[in-house]
């Protein structure tokens, strides 16, 4: 039941997280910024519209947005309850989760290539570059969690971590969180990997892949992007919440605070950093992988 609450609140509040990020950036720039609920207005507006489709496209272009959203929702369904119900999920569910996200990526990349636009091809090419490098970092990070908690499912992993594990292997867990955060920035096309605001086709990754989408399809994509950020953020927040070691009520109480913090953190990173040049972004992702490996080595050492 608490899991269901977390899942549904995630579905409802995901666009709000983006609002927090936007407001943080505005605060850094000394502006007031868009209202917190702007994303919801945008979604409603898009859902009410008709659509313009490129004549080059095939059924893939119509299927991809829906598929990506469904996959993201199921990812949320796997991740959200894991902090409160240790029995949730099955052994290896996080691998399945990443495979599902890969499926969504296959279709979004294909739908970008479907239009025949060279800009969208460019975005697609960069998307696969980032994903190829971020996946090892993520999975090795999960390897650390498996090692420290001794469990193989998301629910079991978070359930198996407690203050004892944090005392003995806290450094490793913090490093995993850092690595996850870098992956979060890459997977959700945030600065320093991608600037969601430039609206210059040559520089973007995610936004440029959906240049030809419009109307309800674009609403699905926008909402899916917000939810994806929520899922990745909750992976990190859940990890830190285990240090509290409290009841599920406590978890639910602290969870929004954690999410707010991640939102502000993303906004802060976006305000104090410039977008890296495209040639340098792989180094950052390789760095995330290196941090994951370091965390793993430390975890084997601490838990001997």
């Amino acid at each position: 039941m608490p899991g269901l609450i977390l899942f549904l609140s995630g579905l409802l509040l995901a666009p709000l997280l983006l609002g927090v990020t936007v407001r943080t950036k505005a605060a850094f720039a000394g502006r007031r910024g868009a209202p917190l609920f702007q994303q919801y207005h945008d979604l409603v507006k898009l859902l009410r519209r008709g659509q313009v489709m490129s004549g080059t496209t095939t059924f893939l272009f119509r299927v991809a947005p829906s598929l990506a959203l469904v996959v993201t929702v199921s990812a949320a369904a796997l991740v959200a309850p894991s902090i409160v119900s240790p029995g949730w999920g099955f052994p290896g569910d996080f691998v399945f989760l990443l495979c599902l996200l890969g499926l969504a990526r296959f279709f979004t990349v294909s739908s970008a290539l479907d239009t025949g636009s060279s800009f969208e091809g460019m975005g697609a090419s960069r998307e696969v570059l980032y994903s190829a490098l971020s996946e090892p970092a993520l999975l090795i990070g999960f390897g650390v969690l498996v090692r420290v908690s001794g469990e193989m499912s998301l629910g079991g992993m978070y359930g198996g971590l407690g203050s004892g594990e944090w005392l003995s292997a806290g450094t490793a867990l913090c490093l995993v969180a850092v690595s996850f955060f870098i992956v979060l920035l890459a997977e959700n096309s945030r600065i320093p990997f991608d600037d969601p605001n430039t609206h210059l086709e040559l520089t973007m990754v995610h936004e440029v892949m959906v240049l030809d989408n419009s109307g309800p399809d674009f609403a699905l994509i926008t909402y899916g992007a917000a939810l994806k950020l929520w899922v990745f953020a909750s992976l990190i927040v859940n990890l830190f919440l285990t240090a509290l070691g409290g009841s599920s009520f406590q978890y639910i109480a602290w969870f929004p605070a954690g999410m707010l913090l991640v939102g502000v953190l993303v906004g802060t990173v976006e305000s104090v950093m410039a977008r890296l040049s495209l040639l340098k972004t792989p180094h950052l992702l390789a760095g995330a992988g290196a941090i994951s490996v370091l965390a793993f080595i430390l975890s084997t050492r601490f838990l001997q």
Binding site: G50, V52, M53, S54, G55
Partner: peptide, 10 residues
């Protein structure tokens, strides 16, 4: 709704 076909955005 109106669903129209147009060339790819160039």
């Amino acid at each position: 709704r109106s669903v129209t076909t147009a060339p790819t955005w160039g």
